[in-house]
Design a protein around this nucleic acid. Structure first.
Lengths: 343, 343
DNA sequence: TTGTAAGCGTTATCAG
DNA sequence: CTGATAACGCTTACAA
């Protein structure tokens, strides 16, 4: 079923059919209606590859996912796919393992798939302008905010306010009387939001008047995917063995928090009675674990729709922008008032 | 960077370059080496769309995911993507909501994307030959077994042995003394593995000499995605309120099992002391929850590599086959010996 | 062993 | 308002 078949069936040329189906001007209303009717009858659907061959008319959006095993990203991906398809575009997902370079992956996708635009999910926040020069189509960083040291004119971003979110978490724990609070972060080489959240953690502690203690800020080696349960478990286990005096743990993500709870339980500690644990992201499972996780919930629908709105505005020639969206602290069962006697 | 650029740089024609890069015969070894060298130097990567335009040379595999929010499928997807890319093909993922028709979605993907082959992840097991007639490329059903009432010559499949797996679960619970065992299944209209597992459950009960009790087999309405936590929670909550005498719950999937544990906890029951709960699939989080879930673990790597091996053999003209892979019962903390006094 | 040219299905240009 | 025709980048008969 090609465009020619429709043309023949209607007794018109292929150009007219193309114009009718793409809502272009310069065509009689009656003809247009007749053609669209016929296309629907014959269940015609244009060949994606033929459309994409011409540089001017691309219908593919690439989604570059850095750290594809991160459960939070899986929820985001689903929403992005829905949104992009609803706009008549196709999504092409490229997985990039945490240790690899997503800009290189983006260049590859650009050469092979020739997308109309790109979305970066996760990834490093401190790219240089030179990095973005390689990305020759409009692009938006999703969940990665504008880097503090860049002016941000070279790219766009939509992200949660990590600094504010972590501050909310720390303030919550501080109000519950916690003073020896540890942080579970990303690996030492990481430059993604995990790093930002760690900085935010230290800043928030200072804000509360708690002296910083670098031995309580934990980062793993670069062997494991730092957004996995296994990583969180080993990190938390070691922390709790070495520093049994901590009364609260702030985890960079929900997955780490859940793994930390498990590690604590295995060490004979009861959450939240002996130890408070907080997460970040608000993935679905956190509402169904025991205890339910206290976490900073990211409004995923809002983030995704803002990302896509911004992306399509860029495709229409608008300027780069940076959008920061507030999260919401959901207090649940994994955090409680400190029992100082316990330590 | 087109194939012409390489040709010009090497002083040869485009045909020669194409042949060199695609390992085709009829080319001097020296020329071939020279061309490949140059292609690497210039970082040439062929345009995916141009390649796919010719029917004979397709490089895309479609993955039709029925019920894309099922966490188990997310783990499978990741592995499929890796395997397909390693073979030099591209994966195009199509999400199909649980209530929609995946054969219709497949037809759409066929018309738009023109894949070389298709993988169906999840979906209904009792398709008719007419359904498969629409799928004009080699295809494999992944995690959905050959339907009992079809001869299976029309399609291929790779799946876990659901019947055996559920039997292992039920036998385990029976050995722990459980007699009033409930099942949490899919919605009433469903014809996917959830339905198969329900039948296997009834058969296994009979095998153990436990009389069937239809009020203990729970299926939801068609309003919710039946592989979601929310669905599992409401199903389990209602069951436990109406039949507080059940001592064990067999859930169709891990997500349902975890949600059931949460529902039980909210009703004041302690798992596994007052109630045993088992899952199915062995998703990652089940090793980190409290209690750790007793579940039937699917060997995902084995399933995925068998699926891809089979798919590529079909593309080379081999016959349809049906592969059944055994799962492994992982006994953990969510199941224990029944305390009859409790009821 | 190599090169020329046709064709894949679509959209854009330009002439009717 | 409409239609023939040339692109897009690649593979592959067929010719040299």
């Amino acid at each position: 079923m090609r465009i020619q078949d429709i043309a023949k069936a209607c007794g018109v040329g292929v150009t007219t059919v193309s114009r009718a189906l793409n809502d272009q001007p310069g065509i009689a209303a009656a003809t247009k209606r007749r053609i669209r009717e016929m296309a629907r009858t014959l269940d015609y659907q244009p060949n994606e590859h033929a459309r994409n061959l011409r540089a001017s008319n691309r219908v593919i959006i690439s989604l570059i996912v850095k750290g594809p095993t991160n459960p939070f990203f899986l929820e985001i991906q689903d929403l992005v796919d829905r949104d992009i398809r609803a706009r008549g575009y196709f999504l092409s997902v490229v997985r990039v393992p945490h240790a690899h370079d997503e800009v290189a992956a983006a260049k590859g996708a650009l050469a092979v798939t020739h997308p109309a635009a790109m979305i970066f999910l996760g990834g490093w926040f401190d790219r240089s302008p030179a990095d973005f020069a390689h990305v020759t189509v409009p692009s938006v960083l999703c969940t990665t905010p504008c880097a503090p040291h860049l002016d941000g004119a070279d790219y766009s971003s939509v992200a949660i306010d990590d600094k504010r979110g972590i501050a909310d978490v720390v303030t919550h724990l501080h109000a519950l009387g916690h003073r020896r609070i540890a942080f579970l972060g990303s690996d030492v080489a990481d430059r993604s939001v995990g790093h930002l959240r760690e900085q935010a953690f230290s800043a928030a502690l200072a804000e509360c008047g708690i002296p910083g203690d670098t031995t309580l800020v934990r980062r793993g080696d670069t062997q494991h995917e730092p957004y996995s349960y296994d990583y969180g478990y080993s990190l938390a286990h070691r922390l709790l063995v070495e520093r049994p005096d901590v009364t609260a743990i702030v985890a960079m993500t929900d997955a780490l928090a859940l793994a930390a709870i498990r590690a604590a339980t295995d060490l004979g500690r009861v959450v939240p009675d002996d130890l408070s644990v907080t997460g970040f992201d608000g993935i679905e499972i956190t509402r169904f674990t025991t205890p339910r996780l206290t976490t900073l919930v990211q409004p995923t629908e809002t983030i995704v729709s803002a990302t896509c709105d911004l992306l399509f505005s860029l495709m229409e020639g608008e300027e780069n922008r940076h959008i920061l969206i507030p999260g919401t602290l959901r207090v649940a069962e994994s955090s409680a008032r400190v029992k100082e006697c316990a330590s």
